[in-house]
């Protein structure tokens, strides 16, 4: 009982959160402390507002020898107004890092590198030739960019956006796996059918004023909007 009471009283005074943050990485290329001190002072002199007070990560991966005086390095940095917060590489263990007042960053702590990232944000598929009647092109898991025209009777599909730089005269279906934020962009809208995430519109129902014009197709809620690409343009010219 007492326990529950005390729990109720002690409202949390902090929260723990995992966050991505940008750190300035100081990649050491030498173990020579005085040379480092000289050049760092120069750099901070060049951009004091950017570097003074900035949290920094000491990266020792480029060093061939682990024989480095971490305490001296961090002292130099702190003297110059930099804030070393952590170290990685160079065979430094948690104990040595702690002695220098630093955290230890291991490979596990780091976010996966870009090239290892899964294909969810895959590069758009680019089609350079015209898409002919009867052809069907599907960009699975990515956007689709068509540089030529999409002919009547042709069909272009993408899990992401569709961009058509020639005339769009066939069918275009964006977000076919159900992504409602997918859009269709084209320089000349003459499509037989456009669709985003399964919501479609046939050419009969497309506003005549948009025919042959640059246009985009997007989904807002359950409504498919077919509109000029630059809807802000008129406003813009009034102001400027």
């Amino acid at each position: 009982m007492a326990e529950t009471v005390s729990k109720r009283v002690a409202a949390p005074v902090f929260e723990l959160k995992g966050r991505m943050a940008t750190l300035t990485v100081v990649r050491l290329l030498t173990t020579d402390v005085s040379a480092f001190a000289g050049q760092l002072a120069e750099k901070i002199g060049e951009a004091p507002r950017l570097l003074r007070g900035a949290p920094m990560l000491l990266d020792l991966e480029a060093l061939s020898s682990a024989d480095i005086d971490l305490g001296a390095i961090t002292a130099v940095m702190r003297d110059l107004g930099a804030v070393p917060v952590a170290v990685r590489g160079g065979g430094v263990d948690a104990e040595r890092a702690a002695e220098a007042g630093l955290g230890l960053l291991t490979a596990d702590n780091e976010a996966p590198r870009r090239e290892e990232a899964p294909a969810c944000g895959a590069t758009a598929r680019v089609v350079e030739s015209p898409v002919r009647s009867g052809q069907q092109i599907y960009a699975r898991g990515s956007d689709l960019v068509v540089l030529g025209a999409v002919s009547p009777g042709a069909e272009v599909l993408a899990d992401g956006h569709i961009h058509v730089y020639g005339a769009l005269r066939g069918r275009a279906l964006a977000g076919v796996q159900g992504e409602p934020r997918a859009r269709i962009f084209c320089t000349a809208l003459e499509a037989e059918l456009v669709s985003v995430a399964g919501r479609y519109q046939v050419s009969d129902r497309i506003d005549e004023a948009l025919r042959g014009q640059p246009a985009q197709v997007r989904l807002d809620g359950e409504t498919l909007y077919i509109e000029p690409v630059c809807s802000y343009r008129t406003e813009y010219s009034l102001n400027g």
Binding site: V131, S133, Q135, G153
Partner: peptide, 13 residues
């Protein structure tokens, strides 16, 4: 013209 377009697609594939 549309049939020709179709044929051009087949020639390419």
């Amino acid at each position: 013209v549309r049939d020709s377009d179709r044929v051009l697609g087949l020639l390419a594939s």
